[in-house]
Design a protein around this nucleic acid. Structure first.
Lengths: 360, 360
DNA sequence: GGTCGGTATGTTTACGTCAACATATTGAAG
DNA sequence: CTTCAATATGTTGACGTAAACATACCGACC
């Protein structure tokens, strides 16, 4: 008899019910604090927002009530009213890569100083879909602005960004109207190539980063221009993928050509792989071949042959990104729209004049 | 006469006014979509949340209205009601450090797959205040859970975490009741030291990471235990700070001691600096001294002497962190509370048997 | 000693969403 | 044809906060 009854009920319930569990969280609200302190919730709000028109005695009462209850303002409710989130979005490719990691860290530091948190979305594939997904998630009005650390080129010419969302592009395309922050790659490349030519090398080979990287492309372009301007022959471009492995592979090739006396690698990791290949092939650095990198990673100075490279100050980039974003968020329109950070050539032991007898 | 008038007015205004500008943002809301589609906003809500009890014709109408207006759900309003944010917090120290960057990237990847975004807070100083500030910002109920990539030890024994906030600790202290994910540092260390002892070295020196790092401490402890268990003498511990520079410094010292035939550096960067110092001092690797590292950074295989090291799979760590966090967020209590990831010894060319004549 | 300007506080309302409840419509079983 | 359950939709209210508006009080000035 009871078995029949059991079957009858229960069917109406999971019909329209959401799969989520209930909030059930019991954070104290302003109302709780207000009750405890014997004031209105608006006064609590004033104290929470540090307004000046609150009597100091009242303020004390409220503060101690907050303390006692462990009150924390509810970001969601606040954001709903103010339209501000206290968060910046960062969309970036592979953070395992040195430059991107440093940039992210710098942005996060700068953001923290401005009392913003950083909502990070990593993008693995360089497809439009992946980037769009990352943006969509951030664009759900949960950040006040987005830094796009573009670095890699996409198949699509332009992303559709919501007009009301402040955006800053770092290390990326400049063919758009968003403010952007970049290292002056051309300057960096130029200083390396000039340095090597100045040492007496007939020309400088270039081990470039992947074709789909903005930075790699700019470094390569500046390399070519510097050679051309100096009247030096332009050797064929060699491509790597930023990894030490790819530098090694390219190095095996380059080591076989006696006419190669100077190589400018587009980053330090590739320079390391390159040096290893040269070493294996019995060509000394910088005796037979001069090698220069780009980035100045922490260990560049401590390689068997300390690496001549280009130092980049990521801290400054992060600060600039956040500053430009805050300009937009807070409605300032008088700030600059482009900030370039000058990299600095650091000359160590991996570059030297070519041996008198060589190919020149 | 007019000059007097000017002074009189204006004083009431900036009294209670907030310094912020108005929202003024005009995103369409569910109500707008509802009006356009000719349904109630609740029906729009149902469509937005992909509920099943909506007529397909109605659903189409709503969807096209959303499309036309460019509607995006408002995260803040949703979060206010549901108590969920679709965001995970990550609190981490220096992201410039290889391991932390890789961990962050892996967590971000795993989070993205679960359709969560990642709210990143970098902590620079290892002071309680800095960490507390980072937590406070995240704890403002704007994330559903927090991964603390602890790595460095703090002066305070325990952080006060809100009980309702799911937390996972990665790479940190185990003296708490939060689920945690770690590499099995002891296993990694043990395999390196055993490897070196097995090659015939009388003992193995250790170039440790900073004393305030959990990982460094565990690697050092396991190093000591392995030596003790094998009956090998325990040389004095040498400390570095993870950087190639510190490895170089320590290396200058170690190179002077002829009894040093094998050194286990707590990370690859220090191993690089160390090798450079040995090289400068005319001691060959691995001929005179064997060197092993920890991390297996991308370029470890492409150093002049490819480095024997311990490979760590950060992807897996990230996946585990997110999985454990989601377990808590979604109320699953049957999952594991601790996940260890096994690192793998990678033997390359920097380790070999000692020369017959040496000190043994 | 009353008007006035200023300060401290309280009251009301709206932000956008979703859960709970209410209602209309449909179809099937008795 | 009635009864009942299931489905589709609408209505109301609440989440926690801060802006806008309202009130109470205090001191100063003429």
């Amino acid at each position: 008899m009871s078995s029949r009854r059991k079957v009858v009920r229960m069917a109406t319930d999971n019909r329209t019910r959401s799969p989520r569990s209930r909030p059930a969280r019991q954070w104290p609200s302003m109302a709780d604090v207000a009750t405890m302190a014997g004031v209105s919730s608006q006064t609590v709000s004033r104290v929470a927002n540090n307004r000046q028109n609150v009597d100091s005695a009242t303020r004390e009462k409220v503060l101690s009530a907050m303390q006692a209850l462990g009150y924390r303002p509810n970001t969601a409710a606040r954001a709903l009213v103010t339209g501000r989130f206290g968060a910046l979005g960062v969309v970036s490719f592979d953070v395992g890569a040195h430059g991107n990691a440093r940039t992210l860290a710098a942005i996060a530091d700068a953001a923290r100083e401005a009392d913003f948190s950083v909502n990070f979305m990593g993008v693995r594939a360089q497809t439009e879909a992946a980037v769009r997904h990352a943006f969509q998630h951030l664009m759900l009005q949960s950040v006040d602005g987005i830094v796009l650390v573009e670095s890699q080129m996409l198949d699509t010419p332009s992303l559709r960004l919501p007009p009301a969302m402040p955006v800053v592009v770092a290390d990326g395309d400049t063919g758009h109207d968003h403010p952007h922050v970049d290292f002056d790659q051309a300057h960096g490349s130029h200083s390396v190539v000039s340095h090597l030519l100045g040492l007496g090398h007939r020309t400088v080979w270039h081990l470039a980063g992947p074709v789909d990287s903005f930075a790699a492309r700019r470094r390569a372009e500046a390399w070519r221009r510097t050679l051309t301007d100096a009247g030096a022959p332009v050797p064929p471009l060699v491509y790597g993928d930023w990894s030490a492995r790819s530098g090694y592979r390219a190095g095996l090739d380059l080591a076989r050509r006696p006419e190669v006396t100077a190589v400018f690698a587009a980053n330090d990791q590739m320079a390391m792989g390159l040096m290893r290949a040269l070493h294996e092939a019995g060509r000394s650095v910088p005796g037979d071949v001069s090698v220069a990198g780009f980035d100045d990673v922490a260990e560049a100075a401590y390689l068997p042959t300390p690496l001549t490279t280009v130092h980049q100050d990521f801290e400054v980039v992060g600060k600039h990104c956040v500053a430009l974003l805050l300009d937009q968020i807070e409605g300032r329109t008088d700030g600059p729209l482009r900030r370039a950070v000058e990299p600095v050539l650091v000359i160590r032991s991996s570059t030297a004049s070519p041996r008198p007898g060589t190919s020149a």
